[in-house]
Simulated assay, not measured.
Amino acid sequence: MQLLSPLWLLLLIPLAALAFTYVVLQRRRRRYAVRFAALPLLDKVAPQQPGWRRHAPAAAFLLALTALGLAAARPVIDVRVPHERATVIVAIDVSRSMEATDVEPNRMEAARNAAAAFIENLPETFNVGLVTFAGSTSVLAAPTTDHDSVAATLDNLPMANSTAIGEAVFTSLDQVASMAEGEADVDVPARIVLLSDGTNTSGRSPDEAATAATEAAVPVSTIAYGTQDGTVELQGQVIPVPVDVESLATLAEGTGGQAYTAESGDELAEVYDDIGSSIGWRTEPREITPYLSALGFLLGLAAGAMSLRWFARLP
């Protein structure tokens, strides 16, 4: 929390003195009553003591003054507010290594299910597009607010050889740029969410892609998907396909995005949930002076109401 006018907190000093004085006076009053009255007689004369009700109005009144003193200092807190618009490009690796079964039922099937849920759960006003990549890239769905149609394209993803991670980023950036045309005066945030399990083997390098994404101010969040023990069978041969976590993390960090790892379908779903939360919301400062002022008013009102109800007088 930040304070725009912190000097107004000095108002709390006399308030603290007032609270201290109240406590001292209450202790003196109790000692005086015990000293000059026989306890059995006191119980008969005043069998019912107000107890906590005697102090409730004063406590509410002091809290009201505290709230008003804090309001004078104009506190500001960070709050999460939803983005009204954004462009999200989902890029999915469809190379042969995604057929590995170290993730049940296989990497591709689990990735498809998790990506579909992620797309459908994005805010309705977000434009979302889908890019697939192996040795080359394909735009299966241009950015649109029709999330169901984009998710439907995940049902049939053709597999191919090689992995062009860098090209996938460049293709995704082209889709972001196409959405920005005609909206030069509107600042719409964009994010690329790239899932892969391998090393770049085709096209431009991830370093070149990271430079381009940084210049375009588009963060790339990467998901390294699968385990180090994954294998696929190609032409009768069993080929190991371990996940290249390091290169994907370097790509994400170089663009200001987040790097994730997932070794199961459940973990992947959690990663997509986390990415969706970070994309759908932003943090902005908000002054809470009106709320504290209203709280102070209500507490003061409560103090007056309790005093009139129980003691027929204002505090």
Rank of each mutant, 00 (worst) to 15 (best):
V241K: 04
G51Y: 01
F118A: 07
L41D: 10
I89S: 01
V150D: 00
V220W: 00
A164K: 00
L10R: 14
A58G: 08
R313L: 13
P82N: 07
R85E: 09
A134G: 02
T231I: 04
E284N: 13
V169Y: 03
P315L: 15
A141V: 02
Y32L: 06
D187W: 08
T201R: 09
D174Q: 08
I288L: 10
W8R: 03
A115W: 11
G300C: 06
T283P: 12
A56C: 05
L25I: 05
F297R: 01
G198L: 07
N121C: 12
L248H: 03
R28N: 03
L248D: 03
L122D: 01
H55W: 03
V220A: 00
T145L: 05
R286G: 12
E167H: 00
A294G: 11
L7H: 14
R96P: 02
D229N: 08
S97E: 00
A262W: 02
R309S: 14
A259R: 05
F61N: 04
V24R: 14
L194F: 14
N161W: 07
N127Q: 14
I89M: 02
A224P: 11
L3K: 02
P82L: 04
Q49H: 10
K44D: 15
F118E: 08
I192Q: 07
L194P: 14
A303W: 02
T211M: 12
P158M: 02
A269F: 11
V238R: 07
V271P: 02
T255L: 02
I279N: 05
M159V: 12
P158W: 01
A210V: 09
R286K: 13
P290T: 03
E208G: 10
A312L: 14
S293G: 03
L295N: 05
V90I: 10
P123K: 07
D155I: 01
V220R: 00
T261P: 00
T125V: 05
S205W: 09
V131S: 03
E183W: 13
G69L: 08
M306L: 15
F133M: 07
P158D: 03
P315W: 15
L42A: 07
L195C: 13
E181H: 11
D102H: 09
D207G: 07
Y225H: 08
N161Q: 10
V103M: 09
A184P: 13
G265W: 04
H147E: 00
D207I: 08
Q48T: 13
G265E: 06
D93Y: 10
P105V: 08
Q49Y: 06
P57D: 06
R31V: 12
V23H: 11
E287W: 06
Y272K: 04
A59D: 06
G226E: 07
E167F: 00
L295I: 11
I279V: 14
D155R: 01
N106D: 10
P50C: 05
R27W: 13
T153D: 13
T101Q: 03
H55C: 02
V94S: 09
L18I: 13
T261G: 01
K44S: 13
E284H: 12
T231F: 11
A212G: 09
A58N: 05
I119T: 02
L295A: 12
L268I: 09
A71W: 00
T145N: 04
D93E: 12
V238T: 13
D185E: 14
T199I: 15
L70R: 06
A177P: 04
S293I: 11
